[in-house]
Design a protein around this nucleic acid. Structure first.
Lengths: 352, 352
DNA sequence: ATGAAAGCGCTAACAA
DNA sequence: TTGTTAGCGCTTTCAT
């Protein structure tokens, strides 16, 4: 019965199962794939044999057979540093996995540096070697070359977040992606702030541009304009520099509140301000974006805008299944970004 | 020449390349795999054809053929929460990828919850479906069942960090894993601290036990004993609770310094202390572990022990290649854990 | 130096 | 209801 040398119990194959169950391989195949045409007793014998042998179909063979690889790819083109400070990526992955795992899909991850071309090479390899059925992307950029590349490679793609205008790509995002930032601006206005500065992300990011627009329009509703807008690269150092620059002005010219593009920057900026002797929120209100756990740990706790990142991940996976014509769960509801008022924002000081 | 319907340029196969080059498929195979027996001109024509068709061997077919899947698996059995606060995992992955990518290996990631059995199921699937050539593990536990499971599954495994006594598993770690913590204790002693408390990680973690031992022995060198040792679950809430408990005592009974098992806990504990009205480091010194970027962002900046996590990841990947009998780079040097003195520790207060 | 052909483990069309 | 068989794209003897 054992075709293998004893002591060298190699991986069982469908043929071993068929032999043990006393049926043909196709019978086994039909059973595991729930094609009809199998009698109940046969079915049971096959299932028993498979269980006893601890066999499940080889993903490789199934993939080769022409079906799917049952793996989704993801490429992170970021420096380790940013990756380490910002759990955005981890949360996203965690959400994606939540959907992939039950469907027995894997997530193939590539973390490449920021060297030019590294990301493109990673996608090419994924496609040419046919390792994945599709890829999930984040952080769309203006004039993002990845969509065209993936179209050429015929790799199904889903973008998390907003595409640039008419970028031809499937994407997932909250219904009202702008809600949180708009609320944040109103929150500051209600507290009497009129000189509000914004430290935005890199210019080439789509969401940078979109958010800046929201910032302006939320202020415009009250007839105001951004006090100052600085562009940063998301790093803590940049946030510190920006904060110093903003606070270097005379009292009458200083912003009374600063909005940062993300929580890491907000925390860095907040501490820079405090080292400069400014009380937060007494003399300066600080607002972040993303609601990292970090925000609750610092003192004062950070007022921020929460994003439902995990739901975004799940939605992306569901959308991918839809693209691949696979059965999938209903798309999850994605909470719109929401203001989380905490301690780093407060009423504008008397003198200001 | 084109076997495909026009406009439907399906993925090229080795046969397409062979046809275009006017040679047999086996010739193409020999060229791409650098087996000998191919004349220079033939070789060139094959390479040209492959380039023109943008062909590379299908990973699936190669894997099926019996070679390797060229993928390494990793299973994270943690709640999303912890994953989001602690970039340890991300850094590790980033290090692993640095080695895998050049070798054209992929990293197949599974994030499973903490439900019992979820992790085991993930490993089983990885093995039974033959999706990966091996797996990399972290966070070894006392009596860790994973090693036996993986042995049964015949899945090569590499552990990052210290195995429990004679756990039969390949592992990578710094030469002197205890250096940092020992230095940290000395650092506190030099500043006059005598009542030093330790808030450790979960009891079932191997490193918890090892570190506690180091803590005790470093104190014993000076004839001292731990003031108090509390066990936590790594969460920020637990750190807050532990800190409150430690500070609730009378002045004479209160620790003058607290060591936390990781930075997240240290930051949470530090802020809990400050909310209680204690000055850090004036009245209480706080020490973390891991050197998360977070530590530099908070105020006061956190004194901590830095681990070379990325090097650990690279070392794990290299060790995996060694296990698989594959060519590999020399194992990277792993910096031993190092004390990073910053602002959260200082001399013990006069009154104490 | 080159090529023909046998599988790797599986699915699906076709026969029985 | 069940079994036989031809590939999926590739590597590898074994001829030539």
């Amino acid at each position: 019965m054992e075709r293998r040398k004893p002591g060298k119990a190699a991986k069982p194959t469908i043929a071993d199962v068929a032999a043990l169950a006393g049926v043909s391989v196709s019978a086994v195949s039909k059973v595991v794939n729930d094609r009809g045409g199998i009698s109940a007793p046969t079915r049971k014998r096959v299932l028993d044999a498979a269980a006893k042998l601890r066999w499940s179909p080889s993903a490789t063979a199934v993939a080769l057979r022409g079906a799917r690889t049952r793996a989704i790819g993801m490429v992170a083109g970021r420096s380790t540093d940013v990756l380490a400070t910002d759990p955005h990526f981890t949360l996203l992955i965690s959400g994606i996995e939540r959907e992939l795992a039950p469907a027995d899909f894997g997530l193939l991850l590539h973390i490449v540096g920021e060297e030019p071309g590294a990301e493109e090479r990673a996608y090419r390899r994924l496609a040419e070697e046919r390792r994945v059925d599709g890829v999930i992307l984040t952080e769309s950029r203006i004039g993002d070359p990845r969509f065209e590349l993936l179209r050429q490679l015929r790799l199904p793609a889903v973008l998390v977040g907003e595409p640039w205008r008419e970028d031809p790509v499937a994407s997932v995002g909250a219904e009202d992606q702008e809600a949180g930032l708009r609320d944040a601006v109103r929150h500051l206005l209600e507290w009497g702030h009129r000189r509000i500065a914004y430290v935005s992300g890199p210019e080439d990011r789509v969401h940078t541009v979109y958010r800046r627009r929201v910032f302006r329009s939320a202020l415009a509703e009250r007839g105001l304009r951004p006090w100052r807008v600085l562009v940063s690269d998301f790093s803590a150092q940049d946030a510190v520099a920006a904060t110093r620059e903003l606070l270097a002005a005379d009292a009458a010219e200083r912003p009374t509140a600063i909005l940062f593009a993300n929580d890491t920057m907000a925390v860095a900026g907040m501490n820079a301000a405090r080292r400069l002797g400014f009380d937060v929120p007494g003399e300066l209100s600080v607002l972040g974006h993303d609601d990292l756990p970090l925000g609750e740990l610092v003192f004062p706790q950070l007022t921020t805008v929460a994003q439902d990142v995990e739901a975004l991940g799940r939605a992306a996976a569901v959308e991918m299944f839809r693209l691949l014509d696979l059965p999938h769960s209903p798309p999850p509801a994605i909470r719109p970004p929401t203001l989380i008022p905490r301690e780093s924002t407060g009423p504008v000081a008397d003198g200001s």
